[in-house]
Amino acid sequence: MLTVEGLELYYGDAKALDGVSVAVEDGEIVAIVGANGAGKSSLIRAIAGIETPAAGTVRFDGEDITGWPSYRVCDRGIGQVAEGRQIFPNMTVRENLEMGAVIPRGRARCDETVEDVFAMFPRLREREGQAAGTLSGGEQQMLAIGRCLMGQPKLIMFDEPSLGLAPALVAEVFETIRTLNAAGTTVILVEQNVAMSLRMARHAYVLENGRIVLSGLAEDLLDDDGVRQAYLGL
């Protein structure tokens, strides 16, 4: 479904991605793990068209989307839930959701999808008219996920969805991702919570200093001594 090959990305002179190749199959969960600054968010931003890669290709559903602006990438069906949630604090919950449906792909089914999101996250319905900035951290994460769903994505990239959440909420967010995946959405999961994301994913990649240093089946990586030492503290 998504094939990234030899992707290179620079911020000024600093190399953030150095020949990254990743393949994501239809309907699976792919985990991308690595330390802070390894290039995980850069990879997501380059795929989403927010950053323009210097070299390499991104293909989605057989189409070369390298260097496309983000609004075109979104409209092909790649959504993202960014790190730190990035909700619009002064807009209401419903307005936030509606902003998720601005691409042509999402516009037609906007009202139905709002209902779907409310059915999925009843607490958002209760706070429909409330400014999003007044929601709790967990509710904001639900809103960010719901807002992403408004664009009818085929592939969702989650960037640190568990960041700053209490353990009970982390479990809830991961459960939501599992449910979405079971319903047919392909998922790229970038997480510092390596154990949890490896247990959930089929394939996984380990990023270090902008390079893929290890990849394979997630369950194999869980047993890999290097991964266990570096990321699981075992």
Partner: peptide, 10 residues
């Protein structure tokens, strides 16, 4: 409110 988020939404 959040330019990055606006861009991410398309």
């Amino acid at each position: 409110e959040d330019q990055d988020a606006a861009q991410a939404l398309g």
